[in-house]
Simulated scan of single mutants.
Amino acid sequence: MAFFTPEKRIQLETLRQAGMRAAAELSRQLGCCPRTVERELDRCAGKRYNAYRAGLDRQRCAARSAANVVVKTQGELLLQLYGLFDEPQRLSPEGVSLMLGRLPRAAGKPRLSLSTPAVYAWLKRERMSDPSCVLWRGRSGTRTTTRHGAKGRDTGWAAKAQSISERPERANRRLERNHLECDTLWGRQRDEHRLLVILDRKSRYVRLGTFKKSAIATAIGAQSLLKGSTLKTLTCDRGAEFARLPQFFKDKLFVCHAYRADERGSCENVNRWLREFFPRGRSMDSYSDDYVAQVQDFINRRPRKILNGLTPYEIHFSSPRSPTVRT
């Protein structure tokens, strides 16, 4: 069921008229993730948000989705689907949906087309009817397809770590320091190094370092950045670069659910700031350690509204009776 009902749209329009613009603030008021709010605002095509106009756009989208019925995957369209998935290029469902719209059509016949969700649904039905028929295994060869927000299955190295659902409540509520999140940033795909970002959940204090992009180098780099600190928990995503962390941090490591970047929201927010200093497309190998240290110092000494005007440096190195941090 869609989150935005007519009542929710009217509430969103009222909040916008009251001067609330940031998606993060709107999501807190409405009780959803910021990306859901951004998608809803996009329904008005960049114009002033209007609940009625957004509702009309939702009805048009529903009408297009309703056209992707099961009956359509028969006859000529069914042959086209099997043919495209058998191509040597190993097309993804997104690629198959795009190619269907580009195939030549006979005179007087409608164009064969299916949306990407309809292709995923067809693949699922094919697996259920014939488990040995696997037309697409995912980009990694084993990953199953799930919608955004799904928890996915614990496969691969993530099965050796604890789920974020088991993380202590004090870490979830940001009641004490040394509960950390980590992520990596890359400049170009062929670079030898990645930027490792480790953030304290309470103080938002950031540690940065450039290390080789292998899993063992990332684990050793995390240990070197955390040297001298008392680690309580460390939360990461399911990226292959973190595959060796369970061997180094054992019961202190927690892994997010699949496709849930919002479970490391603080780290994702800081990554957006870091892109001002480490733009995508520029080689990460070109940055010196001094430059990385300067960026780290600048981010940690930048006042934060969520810290009541204090800096992460002041919160992290102050006494335990520091000002209350909003969650």
Score class of each variant (00 low, 15 high):
residue 221 G to E: 09
residue 134 V to N: 01
residue 72 K to M: 06
residue 128 M to V: 11
residue 279 P to T: 10
residue 270 V to R: 01
residue 165 S to E: 14
residue 37 V to Q: 11
residue 242 F to E: 12
residue 166 E to K: 11
residue 90 R to Q: 09
residue 246 P to F: 00
residue 283 S to Q: 10
residue 37 V to H: 09
residue 233 T to A: 03
residue 326 R to M: 12
residue 150 A to N: 07
residue 107 A to N: 10
residue 158 A to C: 14
residue 126 E to N: 08
residue 153 R to I: 13
residue 66 A to Y: 01
residue 175 L to D: 09
residue 1 M to V: 01
residue 62 A to G: 12
residue 90 R to S: 09
residue 261 A to N: 08
residue 311 T to D: 02
residue 239 G to S: 08
residue 199 L to N: 06
residue 224 S to Q: 15
residue 283 S to M: 09
residue 54 A to E: 02
residue 38 E to T: 02
residue 72 K to I: 05
residue 40 E to S: 11
residue 134 V to R: 01
residue 172 N to H: 04
residue 251 D to L: 10
residue 171 A to K: 11
residue 247 Q to N: 13
residue 285 D to H: 02
residue 308 N to H: 15
residue 238 R to I: 09
residue 147 R to Y: 13
residue 59 Q to D: 15
residue 59 Q to P: 04
residue 13 E to H: 11
residue 82 Y to Q: 01
residue 133 C to S: 13
residue 302 R to Q: 11
residue 70 V to C: 02
residue 232 K to I: 03
residue 127 R to A: 10
residue 179 H to R: 05
residue 116 T to A: 12
residue 268 E to R: 00
residue 205 Y to V: 02
residue 249 F to T: 09
residue 19 G to L: 10
residue 184 T to N: 09
residue 262 D to R: 04
residue 299 I to A: 10
residue 173 R to Q: 15
residue 252 K to H: 07
residue 301 R to E: 07
residue 139 R to M: 06
residue 6 P to H: 09
residue 74 Q to I: 01
residue 57 D to I: 07
residue 292 V to R: 07
residue 298 F to M: 14
residue 79 L to D: 05
residue 172 N to S: 09
residue 249 F to Y: 14
residue 233 T to I: 07
residue 158 A to K: 14
residue 303 P to I: 12
residue 150 A to C: 12
residue 48 R to Y: 07
residue 222 A to G: 15
residue 11 Q to V: 07
residue 133 C to L: 15
residue 93 P to M: 03
residue 97 S to C: 13
residue 109 K to F: 02
residue 180 L to H: 10
residue 322 S to Y: 15
residue 61 C to K: 06
residue 207 R to T: 00
residue 126 E to F: 04
residue 205 Y to N: 01
residue 117 P to F: 01
residue 187 G to M: 02
residue 134 V to Q: 02
residue 283 S to Y: 03
residue 267 C to K: 00
residue 290 D to P: 00
residue 288 S to G: 12
residue 73 T to Y: 04
residue 155 T to G: 09
residue 3 F to W: 03
residue 113 S to N: 14
residue 105 R to T: 10
residue 287 Y to G: 04
residue 187 G to K: 06
residue 254 F to T: 11
residue 324 T to Y: 04
residue 310 L to Q: 08
residue 288 S to A: 08
residue 276 E to I: 10
residue 111 R to A: 15
residue 259 Y to N: 12
residue 171 A to I: 07
residue 317 F to K: 07
residue 207 R to W: 05
residue 58 R to M: 11
residue 299 I to S: 12
residue 1 M to W: 11
